[in-house]
Nucleic acid binder design. Sequence first.
DNA 1: GCACACCCTGTAGTGACTACAGGGTCAAGC
DNA 2: GCTTGACCCTGTAGTCACTACAGGGTGTGC
Lengths: 134, 134
Amino acid sequence: MKIGELASQAGCGVETVRYYERVGLLPPPARTAQNNYRHYQAHHLQQLLFIRRCRTLDLTQEEIRQLLAARQQPDAGCETINQLVDAHLAQVRARLAELQALEQQLLALRGQCHASLTTRECGILKELEQGAAP
Amino acid sequence: MKIGELASQAGCGVETVRYYERVGLLPPPARTAQNNYRHYQAHHLQQLLFIRRCRTLDLTQEEIRQLLAARQQPDAGCETINQLVDAHLAQVRARLAELQALEQQLLALRGQCHASLTTRECGILKELEQGAAP
DNA sequence: GCACACCCTGTAGTGACTACAGGGTCAAGC
DNA sequence: GCTTGACCCTGTAGTCACTACAGGGTGTGC
């Protein structure tokens, strides 16, 4: 299949596909001799779907590269895979904690001004100007 | 004061200060005639602290620019400030919801493999290869 | 023969910095 | 007077994962 069909089957843009090839996440497909168009096989689609699924889980390219490499060694142990997912989960939870703290800070900030005041009187600006870290 | 002192008082790098000047968040300071060093006043530090406080709240440069502009008009109403904080809070909450969903997906994925198997048998890889979006 | 969808390469932009390279300046100690 | 090291300057390139052109070639239907 051509790149447009591959991309639409994977639910991404053709430019994303070419980008994955450029950065080495997708192997370069064969080209037709006549017009140099990329010609993809089923395994390309499989790998692209794998990559897209990983991306919906916010895995980085580097993490995906490690998973793809692991897939090449089906007889090796899968501890690195488990560790990778655990590490990523830990990162997500760390970011969650950060964002929850941020939400509280913003709520407190928002509580500084309820009325429609002048900028000079606005509690939010005052807090941002003078407040130390909460 | 010179840029190094300003930066250390604000708790950021000198390159960040120069960057803020380049993108227009900090006004260009006077330069000493002798050696062209930047020479900062107290109000520069004030503004830099303001910017850094906004950044710890994950406000974007564009949002900070709006707050700085509002500060220049102390007699105007502060509705835009309140709206800006509300909008940002909504964004943070949306991202929180996304991350919580992601956490659940990763947990489910992690549950696919507890043992130390071969890559071929690893439930995580199988899920990533074949699983539809949860 | 023409319009239009598709394909190609290559480059630049996004946000908010960070990290050099390659140079100039200043103060302290010898 | 000289060296050493900390500081300052400009300008450019890198980060991440795309996205958006510009400027061209190709294929298909009317």
